[in-house]
């Protein structure tokens, strides 16, 4: 593995649930992220998958320090982000940028593309004011947009083009890491492919690290070097992308992989699909032991007793299941 650029150690992000208006009291906590240890190498693409509500977006926001961390450390290039002052975090955040799911909502409709892209440059004073127009035009070309669109507003662009603008904005400060939170989920298949190509080309060219969050495993497999599968705030399986998706070890990963519809009618008609019963349980009151056991087809009594931790299982893989060897 390349040298790690980002290291998360036992990161927890809990949100208190409060009741009452005058006498606020805590009645529980949502354990959105509950003990995640993870590292991202320089130039590496890490895929993060899981169902809605499993905490993948909260994890992204925790890394960005957009939500306060409850416990654990987020270390970027030797600097601990969790303990830093606001000013320090702002400085470090230059190296950490985010692309959001919905390009219709994440761009300010009242700013032209030029304003959107120039803002980070001016705020962080990365180049002299006179050089900003040149820099903005370069950014546009970098993401495959013609600089003549500079003075248009977001509504004049299609979804794919807007996502390109959002990527250009993230690249403006030449970050070391980009976190892309479901960047292609809102786009059509043909446009999806364009954005995926752009992201992987940029990573290669600029030696960027990318944390790619998605629920579509086939997309994740294509773009990522390693994949982390999350369930209810915890990572249940981690390893090289192709290994994890073609030979999943954790029962949850197996179910996820089997749920992807394959675009081949012959395969689709004959294969056995693992359909998980029920919905993911609430992170307010997660089941005891392995949080997946109520839906797991392989669960035994022991699964209810202890929370399984991630254990190495060969070939750079880690899995959090006590029965991973037997099933």
């Amino acid at each position: 593995m390349p040298e790690p650029i980002l290291q998360l150690t036992d990161v927890k992000t809990h949100f208190p649930i409060t009741r009452g208006f005058f006498f606020r009291r805590e009645v529980g906590t949502v354990k959105a992220v509950d003990g995640v240890t993870l590292s991202v190498g320089r130039g590496e693409v890490l895929g993060l998958v899981g169902e809605s509500g499993c905490g993948k977006s909260t994890l992204a926001r925790t890394i960005m320090q957009l939500v306060p961390t409850t416990a654990g450390t987020v270390v970027l290039e030797g600097k601990n982000l969790t303990g830093g002052s606001v000013a320090e975090v702002r400085q470090v955040r230059r190296n950490l940028q985010m692309v959001f799911q919905d390009p219709y909502a994440s761009l300010n409709p009242r700013l032209t593309v030029f304003d959107t892209l120039a803002e980070p440059l001016l705020v962080h004073k990365v180049c002299p004011v006179a050089a900003v127009p040149q820099r903005v035009a370069d950014l546009m070309r970098l993401v495959g947009l013609a600089p003549r669109f500079l003075h248009k507003y977001p509504h004049e662009f299609s979804g794919g083009q807007r996502q390109r603008i959002a990527i250009a904005r993230a690249l403006a400060l030449e970050p070391k890491i980009i976190i892309a939170d479901e960047p292609v989920s809102a786009l059509d298949v043909s446009i999806q492919a364009q954005i995926l190509n752009l992201l992987s080309e940029l990573c290669r060219k600029m030696n960027l690290s990318l944390i790619f969050i998605a629920h579509d495993l086939s997309v994740v497999k294509h773009i990522s070097d390693r994949v982390a599968v999350m369930y209810l705030g915890k990572i249940v399986e981690l390893g090289p992308a192709v290994e994890v998706i073609e030979r999943p070890q954790h029962p949850y990963t197996r179910a996820l992989v089997s749920a992807i519809p394959t675009p081949d009618p012959d395969v689709e008609r004959t294969r056995q699909r693992i359909v998980l019963p029920g919905d993911p349980p609430s992170p307010i009151n997660p089941p005891a032991g392995c949080s997946f056991h109520p839906r797991c087809p392989y669960a035994v009594a022991q699964c209810q007793l202890a929370v399984p931790s991630l254990q190495p299982s060969g070939r750079g893989r880690e899995v959090a299941c006590i029965r991973s060897g037997e099933i």
Binding site: V189, S190, Q192, A193, L196, N197, S200, E201, D216, S218, V219, K221, H222, A241, V242, I260, T262, P263
Partner: peptide, 12 residues
């Protein structure tokens, strides 16, 4: 253009 049908590592 479906990623699942394409070889990994190549351009989509």
């Amino acid at each position: 253009s479906i990623p699942a049908l394409q070889a990994k590592g190549t351009e989509l």
